Structure formats: structure tokens, C-alpha cells
Amino acid sequence: MSEPKATPNLKGTWNQAILTFLFPILLVMGVRWALFEPFVIPSGSMIPNLLIHDHILVKKFAYGLHIPFSDKWLVQWSTPERGDIVVFKYPENPDVYYIKRLIGLPGDQIEVRAGRITVNGKAFEMAPYEGPLVNNKEFYYFTENNTQKSYVVRFLSEENSADVQVYQVPPDQFFFMGDNRDQSSDSRFWGFVKNDYLVGKASVIWLSCNSTLPTMTFVCDPSQIRFNRLFKTLD
């Protein structure tokens, strides 16, 4: 007499299949929520430090973690330092992400004179930049030192202006500017950024290209890769 055949455990099979399908998705979502998220630079507002079509990774955990699908912080263990390159939600349309350099902290008084910065009565040190960029005669480059970090900024003119704009940073908000000082839409024009709108700190350029594929504008043209920018860390 033959043994009856065992009935397959279809419930277990389906559970395994669903878990196999969902696990990679949940893993990617978890990494993007808590660790790193990729962004592509769409404009020249951060030239010379970030170029159009630079692909960067942003540390989502640099300042804390947001509640999933919310602007509110689940936990925040630090705030940005002056000079950090930060991705944040654009105050006038939170569905859009911007990237700029942090200039003013909560409570700071910012004075801007033709892109030159004074914070709480102390001017950022500016020195002419000497390097390969000076071959570009259309622009003027300076090394800016905010006492915590030094970085290169770009101007259309080397002249300083007599006109001064003064900004008082409110509590729990921040003031941002682009490194391409005369060609940047930033806090000088649309105001301050709420602490809740901070997304993370720019970490590294993992891919960069001069142009994208004509049929897929989000994909770099392999023949136009800027190899000298690959894996460049950002300060």
C-alpha cells in the first residue's frame, strides 16, 4: 500500500516569495531613509565645488533621523556646522530639494556685501585663489575662510560693493548661500530654512559627467565621464 503524498505548504511558499520580493525594496528604502541618498546636481549655484551632473551621496544620518514620510525629526543628535554643504527642502516648495553651503546659524546676524560675508561682526577671510581655475578669465576665485572651514568661491567681479544686506537668522532656522556667489538663488532671495527641512550633509561625488544621454537625461554619457571628480569627498 503506497504512502499518501504530503500536501505542499503553500502558505509557507507564499510567505517566502513575498519576503524575497519585499526584502530588497525595504533594504533600499531603509538605506535611503537612514544612511545615504543619491542626488544629482542640476544647476551651477555651487560652482566651483559642485558642477552640473555631479552625482553625490548625502549622509542622511549626519544630523539625525526624520520620522519616515515626515519632515519632523525622530531624533536629532547634532546640527550643521557653519560651512557644511547641506541638502534641504526648498522653503517655498518642500517637494523640491536644494543644496547650498551653510552660512548662518540660529541667532546669527549676517551681513552680505556683494557676496562677501560678515557674521556677528566678524568678516570671513578672503584671499585670491591660486590654482587651475584662475585660467578662466570670466570669473574671479577666492578662498573663503569662515574660521571653521576653507573653500573656494566664485564671483563675476572682484570689486566689493558699498551696499550691505543684513539678515537676522531666527531661532531654529538657517541661512544658506551658494559658492557661485553672483549666480545663486539662495537665502538672500527666498529666506531662511527651517531645521525640520534639513535632509543631510553632502558626503562624496560618486559619479560625474559633462553631459547625459540624449534619450535618458538622468543617465551619464559614458564617453563624458569626469574621472578626476570620481569619489571626491566634500567638505
Rank of each mutant, 00 (worst) to 15 (best):
A162W: 03
G178D: 03
D108H: 05
Y167C: 01
M216S: 14
P132I: 13
F155G: 06
G178C: 03
I225C: 06
Q148W: 02
L133V: 12
C220M: 09
D196I: 09
L133C: 06
V96H: 11
F88D: 11
V112S: 07
D95V: 06
R229V: 03
A202C: 06
A62M: 10
Y167E: 04
G64Q: 00
A123W: 08
E92L: 07
N49V: 03
G131L: 13
E111Y: 02
E92C: 00
Y151S: 04
N146K: 06
K122N: 13
V169G: 08
I85Y: 01
V166E: 12
D108V: 05
L234G: 04
V152A: 09
F176W: 04
Q16R: 15
M216C: 09
S70L: 06
D179E: 10
T233D: 02
S208P: 05
R116S: 04
F175T: 10
T7R: 15
Y167L: 07
H66G: 06
D54Y: 10
D235T: 13
R82K: 14
D235A: 11
I67Y: 15
P42R: 11
G200V: 08
D95Q: 14
N180E: 08
D182Y: 02
L65P: 00
P48G: 01
G191Y: 03
S43F: 08
K194I: 05
F218G: 02
V152H: 08
N120M: 07
K201H: 07
G83C: 02
V40F: 00
S187K: 12
M46R: 12
L105C: 00
I99F: 06
A62K: 14
E130A: 01
L51F: 08
M46G: 10
F192T: 08
L230H: 04
F142H: 12
W14F: 15
F227V: 12
P42Q: 05
Y167R: 09
L74P: 00
E37V: 02
V119W: 12
S45F: 00
P80A: 08
I205A: 09
V219I: 15
V204S: 07
I99V: 15
C209L: 05
P94M: 11
A127E: 15
S185G: 04
T143L: 04
I117W: 03
D108M: 03
E3T: 10
I56S: 11
C209W: 06
F218C: 01
T13L: 08
S45T: 08
N145H: 14
C220Y: 10
G200N: 09
V31H: 06
T215S: 11
S185D: 09
M216T: 13
K122R: 15
D84E: 11
V166K: 13
W33F: 01
V204M: 11
S187P: 06
Q16D: 15
M1R: 13
G200R: 13
L27H: 00
S43V: 10
D186Y: 01
I41M: 13
H55F: 05
E92N: 05
L102G: 00
G83E: 03
S187C: 12
A127H: 10
F174V: 09
